[in-house]
Design a protein around this nucleic acid. Structure first.
Lengths: 216, 216
DNA sequence: TATTTAAGATAGTAATACTATTATTTAAAA
DNA sequence: TTTTAAATAATAGTATTACTATCTTAAATA
């Protein structure tokens, strides 16, 4: 994790882990706009000042938990594609991993991956859609996202070494896996999955999109 | 325009038009988070209370100007595709229209379309990425976006009547035309256009994506 | 035992997102 | 023309947010 994101490493103390745990819960339940350090402190049973000793502001905390998620996805991806040779099967794994509501990984006690996935769908783009995106980028806040994008881009190039837009296609897969899910559940007429509301439909749509464009 | 978005119709008075004009300017310059009714009032030369007589809150004002933009795009689209029969040429027009930085339309005195396009790229998704998206949707706040999505979906079906995901592909085109532009300018490693920073590259990428997926 | 360090408790401030009241100007209706 | 209503301007006030500062206590470390 990028140390510029925090003032004190939340992984190193009980209070820190509680900040992460309750942040995920509260952002998931009420959305990022309604999330405040005061509510977070009350939920933990500490004070506002206590939270501020770990994170400068709520935006950095959001970027922190999102970075955590991308790191976890990166790990899941390398784990799940470990022994696979066929790049198009790998790419299918990528699409499925990004589109599927993950189950909570019990090995990470203070992080609920299911809720984190939901947060990414609804709040993920708020990490970079700010007027200080340039500054944040200079401080490497989006490195885990970029790393994942590069990993996926490489798999795309394994499928077709001549494909010209591996990074753009990778970011399209990531963003659309989330956005089509959001639309399916909240603005269904913007999708074609309104009847079933089934993630598998999103996977089918994305697979068709991706494999038709890279096989020229 | 949906009357639930405003308390008093801003098109009907000078103050109203000034609210729209200066909102676009301020949101464009400083981003939506930094935008407040107080700053807006100061910029116009009126009072905070004056702005509140037109709009309940800044979120509704954002949705208003975004709706205005989608209505304008819808008009531009029907105007530009008026005499075109070939649906794939129409679809190319759609991609170009959404991806290109429009010039300011001088017939709309109080609206700067160039700035509005930039606002849509950086702030567009904030209109619906809220925890009250369901309520807003029930009040038809997103109708202009849905209408545009349907129009594009119909053009897609003209190209291939058997294509199964016309709405999802339409929303993908709209969102990616904006997001790839944002990434190109602010997080270039997430795209393949970092060297040229040219919108035409985004158009080429999207055309390849779209036409390869609908021609099965 | 002395000394850092983290946490808890409390207070305070500037800005934000509103609401309310009153006075003044403008414009339409009687 | 006068009356009346509507829009605007001016001012004040509140709850909440997003912080900063300080002081005390508890626990870990040297």
């Amino acid at each position: 994790m990028n140390p510029s994101l925090y003032l004190r490493d939340p992984e190193q103390s009980e209070l820190g882990k509680n900040i992460i745990k309750h942040s995920i819960q509260l952002i998931h339940d009420n959305g990022f706009e309604a999330f405040t350090f005061k509510k977070l402190a009350e939920s933990i049973g500490t004070t506002e000042a206590g939270v501020y000793r770990y994170f400068e502001n709520k935006h950095k905390l959001l970027v922190y938990i999102i970075s955590w998620y991308w790191g976890w996805i990166q790990f899941q991806l390398s784990y799940q594609t470990n022994n696979i040779e066929d790049p198009s099967i790998k790419l299918k794994k990528v699409i499925t991993l990004l589109s599927t509501n993950v189950e909570d990984d019990i090995t990470t006690g203070h992080v609920d991956e299911f809720q984190l996935h939901q947060i990414l769908i609804a709040e993920g783009s708020k990490a970079y859609l700010t007027n200080h995106v340039g500054k944040d980028n200079k401080q490497q806040f989006f490195q885990p996202y970029k790393d994942l994008c590069n990993t996926i881009g490489e798999i795309i190039l394994e499928c077709n070494p001549k494909y010209k837009y591996p990074h753009s296609l990778a970011s399209t897969i990531i963003e659309m896996a989330h956005l089509q899910n959001f639309f399916m559940n909240h603005l269904p007429t913007l999708t074609d999955f309104s009847k079933s509301k089934d993630e598998k439909e999103i996977i089918k749509y994305l697979e068709e999109l991706v494999f038709n464009t890279i096989r020229i």
